[in-house]
């Protein structure tokens, strides 16, 4: 079990990964940064989100990029996780991203009309 032990040691020496919430961060924003997302404008969205969080000094929010979520057609996709509750937004641009930070994260009310829907 030498290798497994080696892997455990590596794992323990690591930082908390960006996709887990911990004591400091209770909210997480994931932006789909696969090529599909980027092609649809995800880079601007990610930058806007970070800018907006910095402006508002929201330190409890972690931002991370992730790969393709699968629904390329609806890119850019942004997923917000607040206290374990996940919400995915579709077709996000910079303006929408700013509003989501304000409404969903600051005011605590998701913008349902932009949430990815069943159709």
């Amino acid at each position: 079990m030498k290798s497994l032990a080696g892997l455990r040691a590596i794992r323990e020496s690591m930082h908390q990964p960006s996709n887990r919430l911990n004591n400091e961060t209770t909210t997480r924003i994931m932006v789909g940064m696969g090529t599909c997302g980027i092609a649809a404008g995800a880079r601007t969205v990610l930058l806007t989100v970070m800018e907006e969080l910095a402006t508002r000094n929201l330190q409890h929010v972690a931002v991370a990029q992730t790969g393709c979520m699968g629904m390329c057609e609806k890119e850019p996709l942004v997923e917000i996780e607040v206290d374990g509750q996940k919400t995915t937004y579709a077709y996000i641009n910079a303006d929408k991203a700013r509003k989501i930070v304000l409404e969903h994260i600051v005011n605590g009310s998701p913008i349902t009309e932009w949430v990815v829907t069943k159709s």
């Binding site: 892997l7 794992r11 908390q16 990964p17 960006s18 996709n19 393709c68």
Partner: peptide
């Protein structure tokens, strides 16, 4: 895919990555 940060080996390892290898 779409759940972890692909640029972070920590994310992968914490998602039980490399356990199969070990």
């Amino acid at each position: 895919c779409g759940l972890i940060n692909p640029d972070s080996i920590e994310d992968y390892v914490h998602a039980d990555g490399y356990i199969a290898l070990a």
